[in-house]
Design a protein around this nucleic acid. Structure first.
Length: 1019
RNA sequence: GCUCGAGUGGUGGAAUUGGUAGACACGUUGGACUUAAAAUCCAAUGGACAUUAGUCCGUACGGGUUCAAGUCCCGUCUCGAGUACCA
């Protein structure tokens, strides 16, 4: 009987689906275990071999936990709102819902391309997902609850006294009793102070406007990152190096009315919570940096001849006597108000110039120092000296107060600015030379020239300065965070609509019981002509408060029918709670039942990519903490343990195209005919050379450098010349030469499917690939083979280096793929894909199969196992169990290989060894394990069979082969009984002839004996 | 620039609290079987010298601790990831 993986895998995938083998119950006597993968965005390109890496690891763990007696929740779903589907809709007019459905369920797209569909691809790899719990973020039944969370956030404020979110009603009742004078709440910077009487007198609209300054999600005019190419705003985490993460388009600053999430209220708790979770340190670090807590002081400077005050944030209040100027961000509100008439023109020109520059431009030349003097002077709080106030774009509007007290001697940026504009640089550091650069080492700071701070170190001076500022009422200690509130509006179609309508310009929440508010149909997915978001194209998009339903825009009368919000929610809205929704995914009355979440609690193991560090994983923690405050979630951190799987990169293949030119004299022939023929020859006969030829032609370190022409190439050029001569026999002079003007050996990606494990190109496949290559000339190397060169790059369609899991499953089977992906190396490490090695994993499965079967059928017997086989089995159990617990999946694959190699050598056919072995293998290679289990005579699935128990007694050794070292170098091995004492071992070793040979008569200075380990002889 | 991580054969990678460096697999070479190929099986495979024994060198580089260092400490270099005028 042969190992027919195609039949076996199809058979078991069907049985698992039919019998719902992996359905998880919300009630169980077993302990719970929740294993989660980051759900994918279903793109039209489908999965490549890099995607399943994390899924395979989590599946192994989930299966292992079932063997260990846990009730395992292992769900999967789709993050199905998103930009690519919308861009595709704009191009083709197809509804994103339709294309998304095809991408998930399979089918044919409008261009006639067959799409396999994510679901089929996933099923093929034998994952033990509970598909009955699938969620899709774009499903109204799902986004109903995304909208619900939004409403809860809107109806909450953050009470700093209790340090949690509370219902907005409690804030209103405080305002009614005492105004906001003593309210300790997180709110907008510009929130005015009002009394109980003020509150009473405010109009309804005014009250709503004020409440927006406290709500955890709020509508406000904010400086946003506007991406004109995408036609939408972006959050900070969606911008990489000043351009959009998706597409790499430029981003500019713009003031817009947008929904924001008051995530800053949770800044400290988001930091503190990191200590409670077992997440990778780099990920924690990047969240910590992103939140960016810094301790310091807020200091107020009054402005001479003005009632305005400038507030600055500084981490170095100890250097306050070193202030020689102040700098405001060009966008700072005070700029226009304090600028003197003489400086007005210069300042305005500067402000305008900076506004025009994109974020990227500003980042690109951080070295260019620019700024303008406002003409205004602030007053030093202690010396009362005047301090010139400048503006400069090195001060960011979005951080701190958007203004700094500039201490050039202690801060390099201030120093550079001062040097550039000839501003004095007073030195306040004892014994430090500041003629070349600023001094910022806190540890060795001793303050001088600073009145009451003289002689103090950083720490003491800081607290003293803060205390003195407090006495003056001009400052206080403050903790500042880099984290900004997150913009939550997107000017896009394919996202969750807000459950919001507008009365008198004030947002109103639609009552929960009318959710979901479904996306309206639109004709076009582009912004409207008036620049409104795509939902502005909808004709039925108004809210009728009488009917409680969406009605035609024609009916808007601002009395009972009002306009609905035109923005949609950002990509991370749907992913911020999906892990909880899986616990009770079909609940229509609540986001999930208390029973479900109290049973499942939180995610025990979460696996996904590290690129979500400051996006999804921060927002999800924020929402979780909010729902925890609301009493909806029992845990304030949603995932106990998180692992970032590494990326699988592609191994691109290249051939080199040689450029050449044909020259000839024109006698007897028409010039045009000649030139056309040359062009045709060059187009029809492109020359490609293999790597070795390229390396002889070109200096590999300098690709423009021609070295020498090889005979092979000369031959090819001569052949082409022959063709030209044939066509124009009477021509006197014909030359065919390489075009050496520039990089003449151009590397071109070729499909990795045309290349075998030895990097040899399938020339036929290559020529058939493209019409223009059909008569290509391929110049092989000296050994007669045409070899491509290879380079590791990100897997992508455009680089022709994508390897699909379907092809691997077809050729080697899912079990081989699973084993091989794990075998590649540690889970967290990124590594290049190389199909060649998969034969090793596949060969292992064949060898495993052969332990159970011979030609005629199963060969497993009830014979008692040998001591050797028992030892092999138990050391495998021990190692595999340790490996899985440590997520070291690559080493357990090796362990299996060793085990099977040993059992084969031992000719083991004993049931009491081979049954447990099938269970051990089953998390990794579940199909073959199920088949073996059934063939061994079992009727139930192997999935929940208890994991074999390790027994130390089988590993007890009676002797040990000691490595005998001389001065730390192992020279020979000596088999000795385990029960010898140190002295006995030493005596045995010293008496050995090889020891004497090594010593050559010398007397050892020292003999180190570690029983059971090693013997080292020194001297 | 800052923060974090990593450097081991031709390749992917092993190596538990410091204790036999290179497990396992790929690739390569030789051999068996076969008309042939595939598949399968056997052997060799870090480098150099010796080709029997053996010796020397080897975990990015330079030092150090130790009977013993891939592993611990100090310094340097390279690569990767994140972040970047954050006051």
């Amino acid at each position: 009987m042969n190992y027919d993986f195609r039949e076996i895998e199809a058979k078991w995938q069907k049985i698992w689906a039919d019998k719902q083998t992996f359905k998880a119950e919300n009630h169980s006597d077993k302990p719970k275990y929740y294993v989660l993968d980051m759900f994918p965005y279903p793109s039209g390109a489908g999965l490549h071999v890099g995607h399943p890496l994390g899924y395979i690891a989590s599946d192994i763990y989930a299966r292992y936990k079932r063997h260990k007696g846990f009730n395992v929740l292992h769900p999967m779903g789709y993050d199905s709102f998103g930009l690519p589907a919308e861009q595709y809709a704009i191009q083709t007019g197809q509804h994103p819902a339709d294309t998304t459905k095809v991408n998930i369920e399979g089918g044919v797209d409008k261009e006639g391309n067959k799409i396999e569909g994510y679901r089929k691809q996933l099923d093929r790899m034998g994952f033990s997902f509970d598909w009955s719990r699938e969620v899709r973020t774009s499903d109204p039944k799902y986004y109903k609850w995304t909208q619900w969370v939004f409403i809860q956030l809107f109806n909450s404020w953050y009470n700093k006294d209790t340090d949690k979110a509370e219902p907005i009603e409690s804030l209103i009742s405080i305002f009614e009793k005492e105004g906001n004078v003593s309210t300790n709440a997180v709110c907008d910077e510009d929130t005015p102070i009002f009394s109980q009487a003020d509150w009473k007198n405010y109009s309804d609209t005014e009250k709503q406007r004020l409440l927006l300054k406290y709500r955890l999600t709020y509508l406000a005019d904010t400086e946003v990152n506007w991406c004109p190419a995408l036609g939408t705003v972006l959050a900070n985490d969606e911008i990489v190096n000043g351009v959009s993460e998706r597409g790499g388009h430029p981003v500019i600053r713009k003031k817009m009315t947008q929904w924001s999430m008051r995530i800053t209220a949770y800044a400290q708790r988001l930091l503190d919570g990191l200590d409670k979770v077992d997440w990778p340190q780099p990920l924690k670090d990047s969240q910590t940096n992103w939140i960016g807590r810094s301790e310091g002081a807020e200091v107020e400077f009054s402005i001479k001849g003005s009632a305005h005050k400038i507030a600055v944030f500084t981490t170095r209040p100890d250097t306050i006597f070193g202030v020689s100027f102040m700098t405001l961000a060009p966008e700072h509100d005070l700029v226009s108000q304090i600028t003197t008439p003489e400086q007005k023109a210069e300042v305005e020109a500067y402000v305008e110039a900076t506004a025009k520059r994109s974020e990227r431009d500003r980042m690109a030349d951080v070295k260019t120092i620019s700024g303008a003097f406002t003409g205004a002077y602030a007053e030093h709080p202690f010396t009362k000296e005047p301090i010139p106030v400048w503006i400069g774009d090195y001060v960011l509007a979005g951080y701190g107060t958007g203004a700094v007290m500039s201490v050039p001697c202690g801060d390099q940026r201030d120093y550079d600015f001062a040097k550039h504009f000839n501003i004095p640089i007073p030195n306040i550091f004892e014994g430090i030379d500041i003629s070349k650069e600023a001094f910022s080492d806190k540890a060795t700071t001793v303050i001088t020239n600073s009145d009451f701070l003289n002689g103090l170190n950083y720490k003491v001076a800081t607290s003293k300065a803060i205390a003195e500022l407090e006495k003056l009422g001009q400052g206080k200690g403050k903790i500042n965070y880099r984290l900004r509130d997150a913009v939550f509006s997107r000017q896009r179609y394919w996202g969750e609509p807000f459950p919001v309508y507008y009365v008198n310009g004030m947002p109103q929440m639609i009552d929960e019981k009318h959710l979901p508010i479904k996306l309206p149909e639109v004709e076009k997915y582009l912004p409207t002509e008036t620049g409104e978001p795509p939902l502005g194209n909808a004709t039925v998009w108004a809210w009728d408060v009488k009917k409680n339903g969406v009605v035609s825009n024609d009916l808007i009368d601002h009395k009972t029918v009002f306009p609905l919000e035109l923005n949609t929610m950002p990509g991370w809205a749907g992913s911020s709670q999906y892990f909880n929704r899986y616990m009770d995914p079909h609940n229509e009355d609540a986001i999930y039942s208390p029973e479900a979440i109290n049973y499942w609690q939180d995610v025990d193991l979460y696996i996904g990519g590290s690129e979500h560090a400051t996006g999804h994983l921060l927002y999800s923690r924020f929402w979780q903490k909010f729902l925890f405050d609301k009493g909806v979630a029992p845990k304030d951190e949603f995932a106990k343990k998180l692992i970032n799987q590494g990326m699988i990169t592609g191994t691109s293949a290249f051939v080199y195209k040689l450029l050449y030119e044909i020259t000839q004299t024109y006698e007897h022939y028409d010039k045009k005919e000649v030139v056309d023929f040359h062009t045709e020859i060059i187009n029809r006969n492109p020359i490609f050379v293999s790597q070795s030829i390229r390396n002889r032609l070109v200096d590999p370190d300098n690709l423009d450098d021609f070295q020498n022409l090889t005979p092979e190439i000369q031959e090819v050029l001569d052949e082409i010349k022959e063709k030209v001569i044939e066509k124009f026999p009477r021509t006197k002079v014909i030359r065919v030469d390489l075009d050496l003007r520039k990089n003449f050996a151009i590397p071109l990606h070729v499909d990795v499917g045309f290349v075998n494990a030895s990097d040899e190109l399938d020339e036929k496949a290559f020529k058939n690939w493209r019409e223009e290559y059909s008569e290509a000339v391929l110049v092989a190397g000296e050994d007669g083979t045409f070899k491509v060169s290879r380079e590791v790059e990100k897997m992508s369609k455009s680089k022709y280096n994508v390897v699909s899991p379907d092809a691997i499953c077809e050729e080697y089977g899912a079990d081989s793929l699973r084993l091989y992906e794990m075998f590649l190396g540690p889970l967290e490490q990124s590594k290049p894909w190389n199909t060649a090695g998969i034969t090793g994993a596949h060969g292992f499965l064949k060898k495993l199969w052969k332990l159970y079967f011979e030609e005629s059928g199963i060969k497993v017997t009830d014979e008692a196992p040998s001591a050797e086989s028992l030892k092999t089995l138990h050391k495998t159990i021990k190692k595999v169990e340790e490996d899985i617990e440590n997520f070291s999946f690559n080493t357990s694959v090796s362990t299996f290989m060793i085990c099977v190699n040993e059992l084969t050598a031992q000719k083991c056919s004993s049931r009491s060894i081979l049954e447990p072995l099938a269970i051990l293998v089953s998390p990794y290679a579940p199909h073959i394990a199920e088949e073996l289990w059934e063939q061994l005579g079992h009727n139930e699935s192997i999935a929940t069979v208890p994991f074999p128990k390790f027994e130390q007694k089988y590993l007890v050794e009676s002797s040990k082969e000691y490595p005998i070292s001389f001065n730390g170098k192992m020279r020979f091995k000596l088999e000795l009984p385990m029960d010898l004492s140190k002295e006995e071992i030493e005596a045995e070793v010293m008496a050995h002839e090889k020891t004497q040979a090594q010593l050559q008569g010398r007397t050892p200075k020292k003999v180190i004996v570690v029983p059971g380990k090693i013997v080292n002889i020194v001297g």
